[in-house]
Structures are given as C-alpha cells and as structure tokens.
Amino acid sequence: MATAFVFPGQGSQAVGMGKALADEFAVARAVFDEVDDALGERLSTLMWEGPADALTLTENTQPALLAVSLATLRVLETEAGVDLARDATFVAGHSLGEYSALAAARSLTIADTARLVRVRGRAMQKAVPVGVGAMAALIGLDFEQAAAVAADAAQGQVCQAANDNGGGQVVVSGDKAAVERAVEIAKSRGSKRAMLLPVSAPFHCSLMQPAADAMKDALAVATVKPPLVPVVANVLALPITDPAEIVRRLVEQVTGTVRWRESIAHMASQGVTTFYELGAGKVLSGLVKRIAAGAIGVAIGNPADVTAFKAAQGA
C-alpha cells in the first residue's frame, strides 16, 4: 500500500493554525522559530494572534502555511518515526504547497523556502493592482468545459483555467471583467455553481508574468538539491527529481495551471492509496476521494491528528 504526502495551498489558512503543535512539541516550535528567523520577523505571532486580514495577505499566508506543514512533518518524524524517503512514494503540493513538498523532501532548506515564498507572495500581490484581476470557481464543469468557458469569456482579455482541482471544481483566473463573464457563461452551460472567490490577485494566469520573472531571479540563486522523494509538479502532473527542472517548473507554475486532479490521478495510477495532507485545513483530503476511487485522504495538522496517526500506524 503506497502513500503520498501532500501539502495545502492558499485558502487553508486560519488564525491560530499551528499553535497547538507548537505548544505541545519542541520540534514544531523550532520550525516556527526557523521561519521567523529567516524572515526577520515574528510571523508566528501573526499566525496565532492575528489579525486575520494581515494573515490573509499573500506575502504572509504563503510562509505561514509552509511553516505549519513543515512543523507537522517534523512532529511526525520525531513522534511517529516517519521517514519520508522510506514511507512516501511521492510528495506534491497545491500551488504554494509545492514549495512545502520540496522542503519536506529536503530539496530546499526551510529557511530558503520561507524566503522564496515571501518573495513569491509579494511578487504575486504586486503583479496586478488590487481590483484589476479576479478568480472564480466553476462547480459542476469538467476541465475541458471550464477551459472552453474561459476562452469564450476572454474577449481580448485574460481568462484562463487556473486550478483543475478535481471533483468537478475548476477555478478560472484573469482580468476581472473577463472572469465575471466566465461566471455568467458557466451558469448558462450547466455549472451547478459559479462564483467569484475572495482572493487578492488573479493567480496562475498570464497576468502573473512579473511574478514569474521575480521567481526566476530568486530561484537562480537558491540551492536546490535532488529531493529524497519524487515531487509531482503542478504544471506537469508528473514526478520530477532533477534540480534544474524543479526550478524551471516552479517558474512556470506562477502563470500555469495547477493540474491537481491529474496529479492525484497519476499518483493513484502508481499504486498510491493513502494521501496524508500535512498542515492547515482539510481541502486536499476532501478532493482525494472525488478524484481517485478507493483512495483515502487523511488530514494531519494538530496534536489529536498526530495521536490518531500514531495509533493507526501502531506507533
């Protein structure tokens, strides 16, 4: 029975996330301290005390989610004897989560990853003025249908299928007027629900090219090692291990589609039956069972989850 470890992206954040882990486990506290030191500020205080509107700023959300995911992994390693190289067939992460996956697999250090995602968050926020772009979820359409809606809605502007999340959930991204047109077109084509999302920028579309350029520069000077476990890349939905390719795909990911449905399906086709979601929220665990028949998703993000994991492993 093969397993994969997956890592959440933006949208899973909440004030207080990770605090129970830090309170109970010294190794978790050490991860939060390491991220704080790398950024030169007490991000952990913002995570645990808020305010929520500051935490949801992309430049804060991204390193915060990274910290919780890696703290969770460190706890599993020390408390339950998890050895990623031995216990995981693949790692993968949704958008920002791909950086968490790479850090988990020791391709990047925690400190370097924290600094990279801070650059990424700021560059993504800066790439498009607030109010110019938008994203919308189209529920009940498959990827091809949603991509066709986006193409018809563009009308000379940008509108792209940004996230293929699976379970009939596709997110489109681009110029605000074009995305609003996509919502109306989707409703006329059988979408069960189509709605604008409360996001601060239009991620994963060509409007993010300035952010892709910034990440190309930042990654060019980062030390990237072969991961201990193959990383299933968002833009390929296939596993990669070569550091040069990892860098190239991370740059492409900023403007490219997050092919999450295909990523989970590929891992399942290679025998993965259990997907452990490490960090904040349970979004990815919920998607697993809708994408891969018979597969299960298990979310681990607090001490009770760790206890349950240990009991299931007989640890």
Rank of each mutant, 00 (worst) to 15 (best):
E184K: 08
G168F: 11
L197G: 01
L219T: 08
D152L: 11
L236A: 01
P226G: 02
V224F: 11
L207D: 03
V229A: 10
M215N: 12
L197F: 14
V172D: 03
L219N: 07
G167A: 08
V172W: 07
A237G: 09
G168V: 15
G156R: 08
A153V: 05
V224T: 04
A150S: 07
A212D: 03
P202A: 10
A218I: 14
V172S: 06
Q209E: 03
A161H: 06
A222I: 00
M208V: 09
A201G: 05
C205Y: 06
E180H: 13
D152I: 00
V199Q: 10
V171R: 09
F203V: 09
P226V: 09
S206C: 02
G156F: 13
V158D: 01
V221F: 00
L207A: 02
V172K: 01
K225R: 10
A201D: 05
A182W: 11
Q155H: 14
A211D: 11
V183T: 10
I185L: 15
V183L: 08
G190A: 05
N163E: 12
G167D: 10
Q157K: 14
G167M: 15
K225F: 11
L236K: 14
R193Q: 11
V235R: 00
A237F: 04
A177R: 09
A178Y: 06
A233I: 12
G174R: 01
A201N: 12
A212Y: 01
C205M: 04
